[in-house]
Amino acid sequence: MNFEALSKKYKELKSPTKNTDGFLGNEEQNTSFLNILQTQEADAKRKYKRMYILYAIGAVGYLGIFIINTDPDLTIRNRIAGTCFIIAFVILSVLSRKRFSEIKRSSFLDSQKQFLQNARKSYLFWNKQQIWLVPVLLFVNAGATFSVSNHFGNLNILTGVFLFQAAFWCLLGIGFYMGKREWTKKKEAILKKIEAMLLEFEQ
């Protein structure tokens, strides 16, 4: 087999697509490939901008209602609950922002091996970065407990807290189980494929 001859023949193969408008329409119809790309890009930017604005409004709003608010009806429990929710919210915002910048810094420019390693990380059921979800959960739990404790009524505080904790962790367990099932159904097979491909690079 003559590789040079084969390579020469291979390079003779030309794309049937003549120009960028040939993909999806023409510029007159405003549906050219470039136009579609620009619209997608603008949409994505708008979406993330909107998300950040909502986070900021949410954080400031919560701060105002639960912490700074001088309303005497607002109990100390409400204030502690509000603080817990704000902390959880801030951690989530930071995590989302980090995730967004990771997505933005497209891994399509990485080497093939690095690209697959990144893909592997994103398909794992559990990765190190997700450890931050533990404090988020604990703050949400604490916030919810303080918030609900106002409505225990005749229940003993310890019994109330115990019942709430049981319900909270049960619901979380169900969520975890459903998440795991969904991951097994949709992502596990892909993860195995990626790992098999990565193995090629190690051999």
């Binding site: 497209s106 399509f108 420019l109 990485d110 093939q112 690209f115 097979a189 892909i190 990626i194 491909m197």
Partner: peptide, 29 residues
């Protein structure tokens, strides 16, 4: 936006092409 050095255009294009092809073919069930 990340494309700066024209001398490396081939590498740049091939990286995107190959990674996209893998992504297209393999990473989605």
């Amino acid at each position: 936006g990340s494309f700066r050095n024209e001398s490396h255009v081939n590498t740049w294009i091939y990286r995107i092409s190959i990674n996209t092809a893998i992504n297209y073919c393999r990473l989605q069930n």
